[in-house]
């Protein structure tokens, strides 16, 4: 069996963790407060906030979308459905010709298929797609995971501002368009 201390040390580790959990403030304030001492979070009552970059759900800024289909084509499992048409818009300057713009009729993302890889957000050349760290959108019916463009647009409110970069970075901080 060898020496005993290894076993005792093991007991010390678990016992120490127990004491730290029960008395998170140490000897200064020996009041049992395991809710604070435990590393776990009581989920529905208190929530952890995911980091800004967390890939929770995809938000659509509809004005920027030109129905160019890049995201739908680059999606590895083809879970984005886009239909659009061209329509006339009033000219930018008075007296100019009416512009032709692409309007989207349908922009659906099927989150039941989505792998949350972020390629669509990456490839979008017009900054129409954003990641929101929101994660509570589970549904009892799988069909309801198909978010249409109005639902995707609602997520825009939850998109946080891009955070600053660490020192030494040359990347530019992007801006989230105001909703």
């Amino acid at each position: 069996m060898g020496l005993v201390p290894g076993l005792i040390k093991g007991l010390g580790v678990t016992g120490g963790t127990m004491l730290r959990t029960i008395f998170p403030d140490g000897l200064k304030k020996p009041i049992p407060n395991p809710v604070k001492g435990a590393e776990t979070v009581q989920y529905p009552h208190e929530k952890e906030s995911p980091p800004t970059r967390a890939r929770g759900v995809i938000a659509l800024h509809e004005e920027n979308c030109t129905a160019c289909m890049l995201c739908a084509r680059e999606c590895p499992d083809w879970c984005i459905y886009i239909e659009g048409h061209k329509e006339k818009a009033p000219p930018r300057r008075a007296g100019g010709k009416p512009r032709k713009v692409n309007a989207i009729d349908r922009f659906d993302i099927d989150f039941a298929l989505c792998m949350f890889c972020g390629i669509c957000v990456d490839v979008c050349p017009f900054d129409a797609l954003f990641w929101s760290p929101e994660y509570e959108f589970s549904e009892p019916r799988i069909a309801d995971l198909l978010h249409d463009k109005s639902r995707l647009a609602e997520w825009m409110e939850t998109v946080p501002a891009f955070e600053a970069y660490e020192a030494g970075s040359e990347a530019k901080v992007k801006q989230v368009p105001p909703t």
Binding site: M18, T21, V35, A38
Partner: peptide, 13 residues
């Protein structure tokens, strides 16, 4: 409870 505390969790709440 106590075993949960040993594992830094709360157990049933």
């Amino acid at each position: 409870k106590l075993v949960s505390f040993m594992q830094s969790r709360l157990g049933p709440m």
